Amino acid sequence: MTDDTAVQARRREIASEHLLFKLIEYVEQRHPGLLDFLEGSLDHLGDPAHDETKDDEAVRQIARQMITGARAEIAE
């Protein structure tokens, strides 16, 4: 049986990620430099977990992949 809370969280994450990508694309197309700025901020990004799941670099890698995807989408 699927946990309803986990399903809702996944759906919110998918929706939020889509809207964030579209916002980034919109701003970058009108004001170039946003993606460079975001990329430059990644050293300050970390995982707030306080247990064995904490992995700052994994969080940064996801952000890098999102930036790469946004750059590719804009280049099309």
Rank of each mutant, 00 (worst) to 15 (best):
M1L: 13
M1R: 07
M1F: 03
D3V: 15
D3F: 07
D4G: 05
D4F: 09
D4Q: 14
A6W: 15
V7T: 07
V7A: 02
V7F: 03
Q8Y: 13
Q8L: 14
A9V: 03
A9K: 12
A9I: 14
R10G: 03
R11V: 13
R11E: 08
R12L: 15
I14P: 02
I14E: 15
A15D: 12
S16H: 15
E17W: 09
H18E: 15
H18F: 11
L19G: 13
L19N: 05
L19H: 15
L20N: 05
F21W: 04
F21Q: 07
K22L: 10
L23E: 02
L23Y: 00
I24E: 04
Y26C: 02
Y26L: 01
Y26I: 10
V27R: 06
V27T: 07
V27A: 12
V27L: 04
E28W: 02
Q29H: 08
Q29F: 02
H31V: 11
H31K: 04
H31M: 04
P32I: 04
P32V: 11
L34D: 12
L34R: 06
L35N: 00
D36V: 00
F37V: 11
E39C: 08
E39P: 00
G40T: 10
G40I: 13
G40A: 10
S41Q: 07
S41D: 11
L45D: 00
L45I: 12
G46V: 06
P48G: 13
A49M: 13
A49L: 13
D51P: 04
D51M: 03
E52V: 12
E52M: 05
T53S: 10
T53N: 01
K54M: 03
D55Q: 05
D56P: 13
R60K: 05
Q61F: 10
Q61M: 09
A63Y: 14
A63S: 06
A63L: 10
A63M: 00
R64T: 01
Q65N: 14
I67P: 06
I67S: 02
T68P: 02
T68S: 08
T68L: 13
G69C: 04
A70P: 09
A72W: 09
A72K: 09
A72I: 09
A72H: 09
A72C: 00
A72V: 08
E73C: 12
I74E: 05
A75V: 06
A75Y: 11
